[in-house]
Nucleic acid binder design. Structure first.
Lengths: 141, 141
DNA sequence: TTTCAATTTTGTATTAAATATTATTTTATA
DNA sequence: TATAAAATAATATTTAATACAAAATTGAAA
């Protein structure tokens, strides 16, 4: 917990109880959580938590570079906590989002065609290894 | 127009008047249109057009690989008609979406970590060249 | 051509993520 | 302790997208 406080303070985010709990949940689950997943987890420990707080906290975390916002699916935003930059694979059969450990060549200079890069996101979509081997038939929209 | 009919037929899409008009709009404007932009354009020629038709048509086009669905911003889906694969840069100051003509190395094999790739999307986010030189201050959320 | 089924389009209602707004609570500080 | 600022909570609103049902159109067979 002391560690979490330091993480927030290092980013100039006031370590409130709610923010610490949200960070704890992100630490534990790492990746691809959406607001509802985080909200449901929070309810177990803070029954009075408001969804607005979750939205505003994640917005703060994103602004301070603590989380990455994933738009890999159009339905809702997903939040990525992992430190190391990576890409994502979305399986259109089972819906799984899988971390892909490759780095973009432009991550070195953070510049492309004269544009200054602050964030890089690589999305692969298709059929995951698991679904390929199990030859599953059901396909998401 | 005859050309558009052939494009649809080659993908096994029945060339209805509405579909042809939507394809025509995509041809003309090429990239990054959202449903509302297409809908507004359509209204000029088909005053009775329904937004449901736009959604269903774009969904059909996407399923047949005629358009690419962009989730670069979380607000709404954008549709990409350009044939050649490319990435996108989103300027967080002016909101512009700029085509980036680089190709992903995994586009050759369309395979990564044993997962079968059907679609690749690379999103760069930051400050575009234009905004950098004009030193604009306003920043989008 | 007529009939009938399948497809497409339209209109309406609904869902749900995200934001806006305001009130309440908590925290920091003078 | 008093007061202002920050954070949280509760409610209302917005809007992209979907669901559903009705109407219109199309295509094929008789």
């Amino acid at each position: 917990m002391d560690n979490l406080i330091k993480i927030l303070q290092s980013r100039n985010i006031h370590p409130s109880y709610q923010r610490l709990k949200i960070l704890e949940i992100l630490e534990k689950n790492k990746d691809h959580m959406n607001v509802n997943m985080i909200f449901e987890e929070l309810l177990k420990e803070i029954p009075t938590i408001s969804k607005t707080t979750v939205y505003s906290t994640l917005s703060t975390f994103a602004a301070k570079g603590l989380v990455h916002c994933l738009t890999i699916t159009p339905e809702e935003m997903k939040y990525d906590y992992r430190a190391k930059p990576h890409h994502h694979f979305l399986c259109t059969r089972c819906g799984a989002i899988i971390d892909i450990d490759v780095q973009c060549p432009y991550a070195d200079t953070m510049e492309i065609d004269g544009h200054s890069i602050e964030d890089i996101q690589g999305y692969f979509k298709g059929t995951c290894r698991e679904c390929l081997t199990h030859n599953k038939t059901q396909t998401l929209k």
